[in-house]
Design a binder for these strands. Structure first.
Lengths: 222, 222
DNA sequence: ACGGAGGCTGAGAGGAACCTGAAGCCCCCT
DNA sequence: AGGGGGCTTCAGGTTCCTCTCAGCCTCCGT
């Protein structure tokens, strides 16, 4: 399952790419409209995530051009919140779904999966992540450590989810911030530390390892 | 089981597609009459949901053309409430059923299933969901807890149905709202809480678990 | 050993999310 | 008309999250 992201905000593009890669998709990223059109025209992608505001060629035009050329790849539009761009116009040009910035990572993944499922191709990956004696069920939003269930709050769960999605890898605080909170969050970044702290207490000290200056990592086998 | 939706209101089309996908159908969507006719003519769909008011070619003409070409795929017409279009005319041109906007999701799904069943192809999955000592018969719209039958109102049943369809998973309030109430519902979302409250009283406290910040979950067996 | 940056964590204010009883409305049945 | 049941809104009360803050700790370079 291969996705194309056309997004000129580098940080956002990178975040999305990382997250979706962790979900098990192959991800290509380009930063301007014209190149997006070229890559999408290759026909190798199963879904295109397309920002509206793009240098070169805006999202509507890319979308319209693709449809005009007969490509029916599912397109998920990303629109800015300010209402200058209209969701209806996006759908008119042939997009299959749209998402208004800022959006949360969870919502994005859900939409991507829904679109792929709609194409009858099955939406990638089990929703249950097992990692040592830690089991995280994203559909039921439940967490088990060994035999016992651990009660987590919504935010706690989301933070843990980010780590579980990329077991063994270092996940930076800013990535967690962007994925769990809105991409536009501007509060105290220390909030991530607070949640990691309570997760350690509720789960097990040592399960979440701090990598100084880089982020956190879910510890692999003991 | 594959459905085709021909509907030019993008938001509605999107909602329908999402909902029906969740019901386990493969769904294709097109936004104008002519393309609807083309796609439906391919003969790969098991049912067509066809809006009347369409750009290009209106629903009656699409329907009539399909029948004239010998296609007997079930057709469910969507008509506007304002009476300008006549249900009788729709049925005359060969539609199998019609639905007046605005309609609720439950009704739509019921009609879709009924039409598919009428074609002798079975309406997708067992209509009886057993879950611990809870038994929900979606065809008969009856609910049993242990030996005794529980009397539920229409809305109560529909809300419970949403939870039973995905046992153990978290179902968000907005999902319940979209599926049980009209797609265009804009009342107090708290209505879902009210129904969950009465369901708990009628069924059993603890059967429906609140997952704060996420939704509700039908508790799996103890 | 020392200082500083980065990281940890307990406490508490504030508020979001949720629950539920009560009451109005509307439709249908009698 | 009247009554009843179901649907919806509303508001008060409760629970318990979320986020901030401040002080302390840890690591690392000098």
């Amino acid at each position: 399952m291969r996705l194309l992201i056309v997004e000129d905000e580098k940080r956002l593009a990178l975040s999305l790419a990382r997250g979706l890669t962790a979900e098990g998709y192959a991800v290509d990223v380009v930063h301007d409209g014209l190149e997006g059109l070229h890559r999408a025209s290759e026909g190798v992608h199963d879904l295109v995530i397309l920002d509206i505001m793009l240098p070169g060629l805006n999202g509507y035009r890319v979308c319209a051009a693709l449809r005009a050329a007969g490509h029916d790849v599912p397109i998920l539009m990303l629109t800015a919140k300010d209402g200058e761009y209209d969701e209806a116009e996006g759908l008119d040009t042939g997009a299959d779904d749209y998402l208004t910035k800022p959006f949360s990572y969870v919502v994005l993944v859900a939409r991507v999966k829904a679109l792929l499922r709609r194409r009858g191709q099955g939406g990638g990956g089990s929703p249950v992540h097992v990692h040592g004696d830690l089991k995280v069920d994203t559909a039921a939003r439940r967490v088990f450590l060994g035999e016992s269930e651990i009660a987590l709050t919504a935010k706690e769960f989301s933070v843990l989810e980010q780590l579980v999605l990329r077991p063994g890898e270092v996940v930076s605080k800013s990535e967690i911030l962007e994925h769990v909170w809105d991409f536009a969050y501007d509060g105290d970044p220390n909030i991530v530390e607070v949640y990691v702290s309570t997760l350690r207490r509720k789960l097990r000290p040592g399960l979440i390892r701090t990598v100084r200056g880089a982020g956190y990592r879910l510890e692999t086998a003991p």
